[in-house]
């Protein structure tokens, strides 16, 4: 189902991921979060931005296990655990945060 972001209509796949990664802008995350009744905080954005940087470098969305480890290294040990990440993204840090970040569903997401 397409989503409306700042007056533009963006295509998504059947699971709500952006069809075209280049369509992404920060407003995409805001719109998607609103649909999930979630208020995006700085902590959410840290993860979203992290995912976008990871994709830029490696051309894949990391699996949750990889994300957790990498977040711990980059943003501090207190954040590199699934409790913290699931607290931010209750539908799963991989799936939900990747969707907000405009990435495809994580490779290795089972």
């Amino acid at each position: 189902m397409p989503i409306e972001v700042n007056g533009k209509t963006l295509e998504t796949d059947e699971e709500g991921y952006l069809a075209n990664i280049n369509d992404w802008e920060p407003g995409v995350a805001d719109v998607m979060a609103k649909e999930d009744d979630l208020e995006l905080t700085t902590e959410h954005w840290d993860i979203i931005n992290f995912l976008r940087e990871y994709y830029e470098e490696y051309q894949i969305a990391p699996a949750v296990r990889v994300l957790t480890k990498a977040v711990g290294k980059k943003l501090g040990k207190d954040k590199g655990n699934s409790k913290y990440l699931y607290g931010l993204f209750p539908y799963g840090p991989g799936k939900q945060a990747c969707r907000y970040a405009g990435l495809p569903k994580p490779t290795g997401c089972v």
Partner: peptide, 11 residues
């Protein structure tokens, strides 16, 4: 997809 090989260590 060649940059993805560099992620193998993370996995």
């Amino acid at each position: 997809f060649s940059p993805t090989y560099a992620a193998l260590g993370d996995y």
